[in-house]
Design a protein around this nucleic acid. Structure first.
Length: 493
RNA sequence: GGUUUCGUGGCCGAGUGGCUAGGCUCUGGUUUGCAAAACCAGCUACAGCGGUUCGAAUCCGCUCGAAACCUCCA
């Protein structure tokens, strides 16, 4: 069913690159931690979702039947585990004086808009935490039954100490419990319901004011944040599934707790391959809401932000992110963005050139190398920067064919065009930003007339008229490029 | 303090024991009525100090520096 592939994935759990073998071919389960919808997603969030968008796209390209689950956290994201723990969404609702569900709807819509702008494919299933309260309660019951959780005063905590007697709590993040203890001594002070400092809430008793709350065997309350991912991933992908992704910052405690919960409830380690995307930094520090250095997509596009010299299109940003490895931090800078902007234009121009190439009798160049190089680099843990480098290598060939220095046969040309379409548009998910506006027929025909007129004046060596036309079009952001026998036009920024 | 990771040229960023990354910028050239685009060539590199090796930017050790996580965060 799936193509011959030697896809390797860096598994955060084993800290090595492993060959990817689906548990139940041709199906592949991919779960990605989605946003907590209590405020706008910023660019750092986008990078993470983009990483897994490309993973999803490439797995699909390889012929796998991928079920991609990305959740929406709409409840249970407690500010902390203290007894006065507050829910992020409720806090926001109180601030904005509206219903929690209104907050959820507002920022879920915002999230979807953003994600569309960056051309991220929608997941197969986008479950919400509030839609799976029953399953969460059932999971808590299983954990309690197995002796890995205890109830105190209407709340339920995961018993990390008990768990670590039989299992390895910290296997994902590399943390050791006794070391953790030394560092968190301060947190043990005060009246805490937990038996052990590392225990975490899986059910939290609701206070009087809490709006979103549910009945449970332990009274009225809300589920713990880590629980929803454990429940929803295994509900839709099975007790063991292939890939779990998320940002590096979720590795501990969130993902560590997910493992503990699943093992605690069902005795199975749910995830075969853990993937963690790295952070977006600004001037060397992580972009985050709390630090106030985050961009909203609108600010990015308009350039209306103190840290931005100008606006950048979503595709420029997408391309910029793809030019770095997902496992590395990327530093956001204007110089880098401008570099990406020009690089993307070059790539898109090259594809335009490719689509207009005229085939020759036979090829003087080897197409297969370019194609297999792209596959190889994607197979190497989704190495998009390398893939892009190979695409640029191919561009040189395309341009020299266009210049008449090399030639390409009809079947090779077809292959090459298919290859660029597949890799650039389907796998990397880039979109030609000018093409949409160029589908207007009247516009195209008008431009044909103008270009024809200009051609006439050029033939008459009436340079001033030819230049006038070019300059005036330039004012409308239309640029004219002359080659030997014809002129082409396109919109520019 | 602990865990994880990293330090590559003007900028961004791959790579990995011996073979050109790539993009952007800059310089020179080709092409062009001019421009743009394209093409060719050039320019600055692997934090520092030791070690292993025939050979290291790539492995090991130390030093210096940076980041994330250890509290909510993609």
């Amino acid at each position: 069913m799936s193509k011959e592939s030697s896809l390797h994935i860096y598994n955060s759990l084993t800290r090595t690159k492993e060959i990817f073998k689906p548990l139940n071919p041709p199906f592949v389960g991919l779960y990605v931690c989605g946003p907590t919808v209590y405020s706008d997603v910023h660019l750092g969030n986008v990078r993470s979702f983009l990483t897994f968008d490309v993973v999803y796209r490439y797995l699909t390209y390889l012929g796998h039947n991928v079920r991609y689950v990305r959740n929406i956290t709409d409840v249970g994201h407690l500010l902390d585990d203290s007894d006065t723990g507050d829910d992020k969404i409720e806090k926001r609702a109180r601030l904005e004086k509206i219903e929690p569900m209104e907050i959820v709807q507002k920022y879920t819509n915002g999230f979807h808009n953003t994600v569309n702008q960056f051309n991220l494919l929608p997941p197969s299933i986008e479950p919400t935490a509030t839609g799976h309260i029953i399953e969460q309660i059932e999971m808590i019951e299983r954990i309690i039954k197995n002796g890995f959780a205890y109830e105190v005063n209407g709340s339920v905590y995961f018993d990390v100490k008990k768990y670590s007697e039989q299992h390895n709590y910290g296997e994902l993040s590399g943390r050791k419990l006794d070391e953790l203890l030394e560092q968190t001594r301060d947190n043990l002070e005060g009246g805490n319901e937990k038996r052990f400092f590392a225990d975490f809430a899986i059910w939290k008793k609701a206070s009087q004011e809490t709006i979103m709350k549910w009945e449970s065997p332990w009274g009225i309350g809300v589920p713990g944040w880590h629980l929803e991912c454990s429940v929803m991933s295994t509900k839709y992908l099975g007790q063991e599934f292939d890939i779990h992704g998320g940002g590096m910052d979720l590795k501990f405690p969130h993902h560590e707790c997910e493992i503990a919960q699943s093992v605690g409830a069902d005795g199975t380690n749910p995830v075969k391959y853990w993937m963690h995307g790295n952070m977006l930094t600004v001037n060397g520090t992580k972009m985050s809401k709390s630090l106030g250095n985050s961009f909203l997509p609108e600010e990015l596009i308009s350039g209306d932000h103190p840290l931005l010299e100008k606006g950048y299109s979503p595709m420029t940003v997408r391309f910029f992110f793809l030019q770095a490895n997902y496992k590395s931090t990327v530093d956001f800078s204007n110089d880098a963005l401008q570099g990406a902007e020009k690089g993307l234009i070059k790539l898109m121009n090259g594809i335009e050139t490719l689509s207009n190439l005229i085939p020759s009798e036979k090829s003087t160049i080897d197409i297969n190398n370019i194609i297999s190089n792209c596959n190889k680099s994607m197979d190497d843990d989704f190495n998009t920067p390398m893939t892009i480098a190979h695409l640029f290598d191919g561009l040189k060939v395309i341009n020299s064919i266009n210049d008449g220095k090399e030639s390409i046969g009809a079947s090779d040309l077809e292959k090459m065009q298919a290859h660029y379409n597949t890799f650039v548009f389907n796998i990397l998910g880039l979109v030609s930003e000018s093409s949409e506006s160029q589908t207007n027929n009247v516009e195209n025909e008008l431009m044909d007339i103008i270009i024809e007129l200009r051609k006439k004046s050029k033939e008459n060596k009436d340079w001033s008229t030819a230049d006038l036309i070019r300059d005036e079009l330039g004012k409308l952001n239309i640029s004219i490029k002359d080659s030997k026998d014809k002129s082409t036009w396109s919109y520019e920024e």
